[in-house]
Amino acid sequence: MFDINHGNLDDSPDVGQEIVRRIHDRFGDFPARFQKADLVRLDVPQKDIIPVLSWLRTETPFVQLTHLTAVDWLEDGQFELMYLVTAPDLMVSLHLCVRLDRAKAEAESVFNLWLQAETYEQEINEMFGIHFPGSPRQGVPFILEGWRDMPPMRRDFDTVAYCDRTHPVRPGREHQDSRVYVGRKFGEKGYLK
């Protein structure tokens, strides 16, 4: 797609460098990391993410939302949303990372840019408890039907304690180490024979 200030992106020898230069020109000096020849990571502030994504979606070849997921940075008190946006014609991906406040876990929806973001946002809402106002199916169960606990992908969710509380174990099979049972059956060092 032709940009009047910079020329055609397809003609550029290094599309990653070129798209980062254009984003820097247009939106500000975000830290960029060139991870691979076809993958660039950009750390974008929360206020700039929707303008950047709208611009990528409408005016550049980066038209495909390949993935949207979240990471829990418990020690920093933050969530990180990761948008993987791909230019299918050029086979280059942009990895846009946004930090959110963990106490007020809310982000703007990109459903109006990519319809498939609905499912990603529903899943993030269920697994991390991040709310996307305006996105359809927020709060509708996706995998966890009838879940009544903290969202399970938050790192302060104690998986083993929840599992012990909810799912009973078979009597006599409380340990997960098979050496316990082999040792019980064949003597202490039976498994080494």
Binding site: L144, P152, T159, V169
Partner: peptide, 10 residues
């Protein structure tokens, strides 16, 4: 899946 939050064991 012995420690999975969403998987039954028995």
């Amino acid at each position: 899946y012995w420690d999975s939050y969403n998987t039954i064991k028995v």
